[in-house]
Write a protein that binds this DNA or RNA. Sequence first.
DNA 1: CACTCTTATATGCAAATGCATATAAATGGG
DNA 2: CCCATTTATATGCATTTGCATATAAGAGTG
Lengths: 152, 152
Amino acid sequence: MPELPSVKETALAWESLFRCQVTIMRRLQQLPEFKELSMREYDVLFNLRRAPQCGLRLGDLNESLLLSQPSLSRMIDRLVARGLVVRQQDPSDHRAILITLTGAGAEVQRRIGRAHVRHINEVLGGALDAEQLEQLRALTTALSQSVAEEQG
Amino acid sequence: MPELPSVKETALAWESLFRCQVTIMRRLQQLPEFKELSMREYDVLFNLRRAPQCGLRLGDLNESLLLSQPSLSRMIDRLVARGLVVRQQDPSDHRAILITLTGAGAEVQRRIGRAHVRHINEVLGGALDAEQLEQLRALTTALSQSVAEEQG
DNA sequence: CACTCTTATATGCAAATGCATATAAATGGG
DNA sequence: CCCATTTATATGCATTTGCATATAAGAGTG
């Protein structure tokens, strides 16, 4: 049984991760493309793109976002109004709603996504080398999974 | 001159860091103490606690937060109304406002902070060991600093 | 010192968000 | 099968947020 990290060790790591995210997010949000679609809205399209063809339940989609369920419901209203996503009743559970990208929505996601990843590369590429980025990816992936599992 | 990381490598690292932050934040926000004070508001008090005694300019404080300048200005209004912070004119620059914690504000920050770090330890402590947490801290600290410097 | 330009914060107003709760459908017990 | 309970999403309403812009003060130029 390994020793658990101290309160101080975990707090320092989280504090640093959080600040890092804030710093980078502030930069990434300045991309002109995010005037057309907010980063939160883009993130919804991005998540739908990685989803099965049948779409994602609103609740499942919600788990990937820092947004309350009612707020997401209304964001979906707006995305539907813009023709970027579609709401469909889940045939196997009529309480649920499946959300899917439209063709236009997928295209907007791809277009903004290309500019976004280029920008990410500009911002992060000069800061860490490939090996460090891979370490960071591995650590944060392990952390996400472990945290999600330990009470999901 | 070292090779720069590929677009894919940077995008994967950022995506993972971002999702990790979302996952953890959703858990941390559930702490009952954050019904009294939102996490954003707590973060303002936390930043002020680490600041010089004279306080922080609104604009400087704003750089540490994912919040527009007008939104922060109004959040400060509310924190002033609750007696947690004070606005003072900067004697050396009458355009600027120095924001400082009141005694009550400092006490609220300490109280919520104690519960918060315990919660952080519960959530992250089981996921990574001390060495991994230190690696994560080092990488994210280096990344923040490098990103902030490269165009600050 | 007048004038323009920049910097720091605040304010009007529309839009987005969250909380509490409503609606609607599935689930389980008697 | 009926009723209570749980689950999934939506809606009313107050609060918070952001965008555009106003206000106010320092800086620079002639």
